[in-house]
Design a binder for these strands. Structure first.
Length: 554
RNA sequence: GCCCCCGUAGCUCAGGGGAUAGAGCAACGGUUUCCUAAACCGCAGGUCGCAGGUUCGAAUCCUGCCGGGGGCACCA
C-alpha cells in the first residue's frame, strides 16, 4: 500500500460517509487527503489530520469524525488497524502484505518508478547559467549548473517536456573590452582600464596567437575584432565542454547576436506595439513597464539608435514564447534580483500573464571558505575558482551533489577542505555507498543462484520494523519527485535519498538477506532480495534525477 | 528610503500549520568468525533572532523590531 493508495482509500471512506448522510461537507469531499509518515512509530505507519481539518466545517467533533473514518478504513484488506489519537489524528497501520507489495510495484515500474504525470503536457523552457563568454565559469555558475540541470531532470520526472537553454551575451561593450584585453596581452601590454585582467586572459591570448600568428600584424581595428571573435569561440567551446563534463547538457545555446541578425527584435517591438506598450520620447523608444508595477519605464532603443540589453531580453522572451514554451523559467543569481520586476512587467507588456508564463527563480550566492577566509571571486581581479578547477579537485559527482542538496534560495557557505575531502564527510558517499552495497548483495545472490524475480514473492514476509520503514521510504519516492518538480526544489530528492539510505543501512544491519553457510534458501531470503532489488532501483532512479552516478562498486 | 533572501545544536544546514524540532560534521562510548565498517548502535548537545497577533494547535502564517547578505533608487 502506497500513500497514494491510502489517500484514495480515505477519500473513498469520506465519500461513503457523505453518501450515507452521516457527514455533510459544504465544500464537498476533498480530492486528495494528505497522508504523512509519523516521526514516532507509536503513531502507526501513516497518519492523517484530515479529521481535524474537516471537523469544523462539518460541525463535528474531530475525534468522532476520525473514529468514523477508522471504522470505514479497517474494512479494507490492506489496513491492519486505525486508531484515533490526540485531538483527532488518525493513525493507520498497514498490513504487512500490502506494505511489502510496494517492492513489487517498484520493480514492475523499473526505471519509471518515481515518474508521475503531475506536469504532463507542459512544455517548459529553463534558462540557467547564461554566463558571458568572456571568462571561465566560476563557483556561482557551478551552483546554477548543478541545480538548474537537476531541476530540469525533476521536471521531466513529473512529465514535463523541458528545453534547457544557455543564453550567450555575445554582443555589446563587454565583448569589446574582452577583445581589447586579449589583444593587449598578446602584445605584452596591460589590459585597458575596463578590460579583463585574470590570468586566463593571457593564456587565451597565447592560444589565439599560436593558432594564428599573423593576427598581431592586422590593423588595430581588425585585430581587436579578430581577438574578440577568436576569444569568444575558445571561451564558448570551453564552457560547452566543461558543462558536458559536469553532466549538464544544454539543448539550446542561444546567441544574443542571432536575435539581432534575425527579425526577432522587430517582432518583439511589433508585439509591444500591438499591446500599446511602446512610445517614443526624447528620441528614444520606451516600453511602458510602469503599467505593470515597474518603478520606471524602460528604454529599448536609445536616442543614439543603439539597442539596450533589455531590448534583447524582450526579443528573447518573445522568441521563447513563439517556440511554444509555457512557462519560461529563469534561474537567476540574487545579484540580478533587481531585474525581476522589469522582467515580469515586460511579460505583461507583451500580453502574457507573468504569474503563468514567466517564472523567475532567485538563487542565493555561494561563499567559499579556505582556511577560514572567504575567497572573493572576481573575474576582473583574476581570483577565480573555476568549474574546471572544481571538477578536478572535487569531482563531478561530489560537486553536483553538494550543491544540489541545499535549496537554491538559501545562501550557502562551503569549505574548500570539506568539498575537496573524499572522505565520508560528504553525504554523496553515504548515498552512493548504499547503491554500491545493494549492488553487491545482488551480485552475491546471483552467485548463490538466489533469484530476485517476483515469481513466488510473498510480500507478507517483509514484516520486521526495519523492512516496514524501508518499504515506506520507497513508497514515498514518487511523491518526493512530484513535490520537487512542483516547487522546483531538487534538494528534496537528495534529502530523501539520504533518509532512505539510512533506512536501508539500518535494515541491512538488522536483516540478513542471503543464506549463510549451507543454509537453505527460504522464501524470506527471496522476499528480502526483492526488497533489495527494489531499493537499488530507487537509488538508481533518484541519483539519476540529480545527475549523479550510481556506482556498483566503491 | 523601498524590495528580496536568510537567522534552528559548537559548525554547515534540513524541516515551512500538527503529536517528543532533525541530519551530517565535530565530542564521547560501543559493534566486524556472517551479504562492502564509506556502515550500524548508544550518549550528549536547542529561550527555532526578539516581541506581539491569528487558532484547538506556530520553528512554520501575519505585523513590528534587531542582526547578516543582496538588489533598486538617491547622492556624487
Amino acid at each position: 500500500m502506497t500513500p497514494e493508495q491510502l489517500s484514495t482509500s480515505l477519500v473513498a471512506a469520506l465519500t461513503r460517509l457523505v453518501d450515507a448522510g452521516r457527514l455533510a461537507l459544504p465544500d464537498g469531499v476533498p480530492s486528495e487527503v494528505r497522508v504523512e509518515r509519523p516521526k514516532v512509530k507509536e503513531h502507526g505507519d501513516y497518519a492523517t489530520n484530515v479529521a481535524l481539518q474537516l471537523a469544523k466545517r462539518a460541525g463535528l467533533n474531530p475525534r468522532e469524525l476520525a473514529q468514523w473514518l477508522a471504522d470505514e478504513l479497517v474494512t479494507d484488506d490492506g489496513i491492519e488497524g486505525a486508531e484515533v489519537a490526540g485531538p483527532g489524528f488518525l493513525n493507520v497501520r498497514v498490513a504487512a502484505g500490502a506494505q511489502g507489495a510496494v517492492a513489487a510495484t517498484v520493480l514492475e515500474a523499473g526505471t519509471d518508478f518515481g515518474r508521475t504525470a503531475t506536469l504532463a503536457g507542459q512544455r517548459i523552457d529553463l534558462e540557467f547559467i547564461s554566463a558571458n563568454p568572456t571568462g571561465p565559469l566560476h563557483l556561482g555558475h557551478t551552483r546554477w549548473a548543478a541545480v538548474g540541470d537537476a531541476i530540469a531532470r525533476v521536471l521531466e520526472g513529473a512529465g514535463a517536456v523541458v528545453t534547457r537553454e544557455f543564453y550567450v551575451n555575445d554582443r555589446g561593450v563587454q565583448m569589446d573590452h574582452f577583445g581589447a584585453s586579449l589583444m593587449a596581452r598578446a602584445h605584452g601590454e596591460e589590459p585597458p582600464e575596463d578590460g579583463y585582467v585574470g590570468s586566463y586572459v593571457s593564456a587565451l591570448a597565447d592560444r589565439i596567437v599560436t593558432a594564428d600568428p599573423g593576427i598581431v600584424d592586422l590593423p588595430r581595428d581588425e585585430q581587436l575584432v579578430a581577438f574578440r571573435e577568436a576569444g569568444y569561440a575558445l571561451q564558448l567551446a570551453e564552457h560547452q565542454s566543461e558543462l558536458e563534463e559536469f553532466n549538464t547538457h544544454f539543448d539550446v545555446w542561444f546567441s544574443e547576436r542571432s536575435l539581432h541578425d534575425s527579425d526577432a527584435v522587430e517582432k518583439g517591438f511589433a508585439r509591444l506595439r500591438e499591446q500599446g506598450r511602446l512610445y517614443e520620447q526624447d528620441g528614444a523608444l520606451w516600453m511602458r513597464t510602469t503599467d505593470f508595477g515597474d518603478d520606471k519605464d524602460r528604454v529599448l532603443r536609445k536616442s543614439d539608435g543603439s539597442l539596450t540589453y533589455f531590448a534583447s531580453d524582450t526579443a528573447y522572451y518573445v522568441d521563447k514564447r513563439d517556440r511554444g514554451f509555457d512557462p519560461c523559467i529563469y534561474l537567476l543569481g540574487a545579484d540580478h534580483h533587481g531585474y525581476v520586476g522589469r522582467l515580469r512587467a515586460m511579460a505583461a507588456c507583451v500580453g502574457d500573464d507573468p504569474q503563468q508564463q514567466l517564472e523567475v527563480l532567485i538563487g542565493q550566492l555561494v561563499k567559499i571558505l579556505q582556511d577560514g577566509q572567504e575567497l572573493k571571486l572576481s573575474k576582473r581581479a583574476g581570483t577565480i575558482v573555476s568549474l574546471r578547477e572544481l571538477i578536478d579537485l572535487v569531482g563531478t559527482d561530489a560537486m553536483r551533489y553538494t550543491l544540489i542538496r541545499y535549496p537554491a534560495d538559501s545562501p550557502l557557505t562551503l569549505d574548500v577542505s570539506e568539498m575537496t575531502s573524499r572522505s565520508n564527510e560528504n553525504p554523496v558517499y553515504y548515498v552512493q555507498y548504499a547503491h554500491a552495497r545493494l549492488s553487491s548483495i545482488l551480485r552475491n545472490a546471483a552467485d548463490l543462484g538466489v533469484g530476485d524475480d517476483l515469481d513466488g514473492f510473498d510480500p507478507s514476509l517483509l514484516s520486521t520494523e526495519q523492512e516496514g520503514s524501508l518499504l515506506r521510504a520507497l513508497a514515498e519516492f514518487p511523491r518526493v519527485v512530484a513535490r520537487a518538480a512542483e516547487l522546483r526544489e531538487p534538494h528534496r530528492v537528495a534529502r530523501y535519498l539520504e533518509d532512505t539510505a539510512s533506512a536501508f543501512h539500518t535494515f541491512y544491519g538488522a536483516c540478513r538477506v542471503l543464506p549463510q553457510g549451507d543454509e537453505d534458501v527460504t522464501d524470506t531470503h527471496r522476499a528480502r532480495l526483492v526488497l533489495v532489488a527494489a531499493t537499488r532501483q530507487v537509488f538508481a532512479n533518484g541519483l539519476g534525477l540529480l545527475g549523479v552516478s550510481a556506482p556498483d562498486r566503491m
